[in-house]
Amino acid sequence: MNRDTLQKFGLSDEQVNQVMAEHGKDLEKSKGVESELEQLKQQNTDLTSQIAERDKQLKDLSGKAGDNEELQTQIKALQDQNKQAKADYEANIATLKRDGAIELALREAKAKNPKAVKALLNDGTITVDDSGVHGLKEQLEQLQESDSYLFDAEPEPKPGVKVTGSGNPSGGIDGNKNVNDMSLEEMTAAYQKNPALFG
């Protein structure tokens, strides 16, 4: 999206500035979400390597413990705790990734109140993997049809009126001429003859 495109839609400079300001806010929010996801990925990498290091230490310790049954039991309990901590962490990361993806999709769908729209989604059918988000797009499309008031509608571009310096001395109206190509005098005459052209 750029200023030239918006101006081609017939928006005034003020309207273009407002649209660009809103677009800028959306981009900043998206950057914030991407930054959070990058931080989470880094944390995930760090914690995964820490857990791997602990598992290696426990394995080494287990080899040194030999036949000491009490120590072997403690090591086994620690290994189980490590496995559970890793599983819990991975589940939390998956939930955070899914929530971030949903938040981003709601912003892109121009939800007026993302929290309200999210409450209407069937959360259990939404999954996120390396290939993307699944089960969300269809739900959003259904909501946009059934509850369109929850989303900002894209304004339909209106054709701009072009006023030129050339006149029509005869005062005649060319019925095949586009309104955008008419001079002020031609538009005035056309409006007086058929106001519906300008509706």
Score class of each variant (00 low, 15 high):
residue 3 R to S: 15
residue 3 R to D: 10
residue 8 K to T: 12
residue 10 G to D: 00
residue 12 S to E: 01
residue 12 S to I: 02
residue 14 E to R: 06
residue 15 Q to L: 12
residue 15 Q to N: 06
residue 17 N to Y: 00
residue 18 Q to A: 10
residue 18 Q to Y: 01
residue 20 M to F: 03
residue 20 M to L: 15
residue 21 A to F: 06
residue 21 A to R: 09
residue 21 A to D: 06
residue 28 E to S: 06
residue 34 E to N: 13
residue 35 S to Y: 08
residue 35 S to E: 12
residue 36 E to G: 11
residue 36 E to N: 11
residue 36 E to H: 14
residue 39 Q to F: 01
residue 42 Q to N: 09
residue 44 N to H: 12
residue 45 T to M: 06
residue 49 S to H: 07
residue 51 I to R: 14
residue 56 K to V: 10
residue 58 L to K: 01
residue 61 L to P: 02
residue 62 S to Y: 00
residue 67 D to P: 01
residue 69 E to V: 10
residue 72 Q to L: 13
residue 74 Q to F: 01
residue 78 L to M: 13
residue 84 Q to E: 13
residue 84 Q to S: 15
residue 85 A to N: 11
residue 87 A to P: 05
residue 89 Y to T: 02
residue 91 A to C: 08
residue 92 N to V: 09
residue 93 I to R: 06
residue 102 I to P: 00
residue 102 I to W: 02
residue 103 E to G: 10
residue 105 A to S: 15
residue 105 A to E: 07
residue 108 E to F: 00
residue 113 N to W: 00
residue 115 K to T: 12
residue 116 A to F: 02
residue 118 K to R: 14
residue 120 L to A: 15
residue 122 N to K: 08
residue 126 I to Q: 04
residue 132 G to A: 08
residue 135 G to N: 12
residue 137 K to M: 10
residue 140 L to N: 04
residue 142 Q to R: 11
residue 144 Q to D: 03
residue 144 Q to T: 04
residue 147 D to M: 08
residue 148 S to Y: 02
residue 150 L to E: 03
residue 153 A to E: 14
residue 157 P to V: 03
residue 157 P to R: 01
residue 160 G to W: 06
residue 160 G to Y: 03
residue 169 P to C: 10
residue 172 G to K: 11
residue 172 G to L: 08
residue 172 G to F: 01
residue 174 D to Q: 09
residue 179 V to A: 08
residue 179 V to Y: 02
residue 187 M to R: 07
residue 189 A to V: 13
residue 189 A to S: 09
residue 190 A to T: 14
residue 192 Q to D: 08
residue 198 F to G: 09
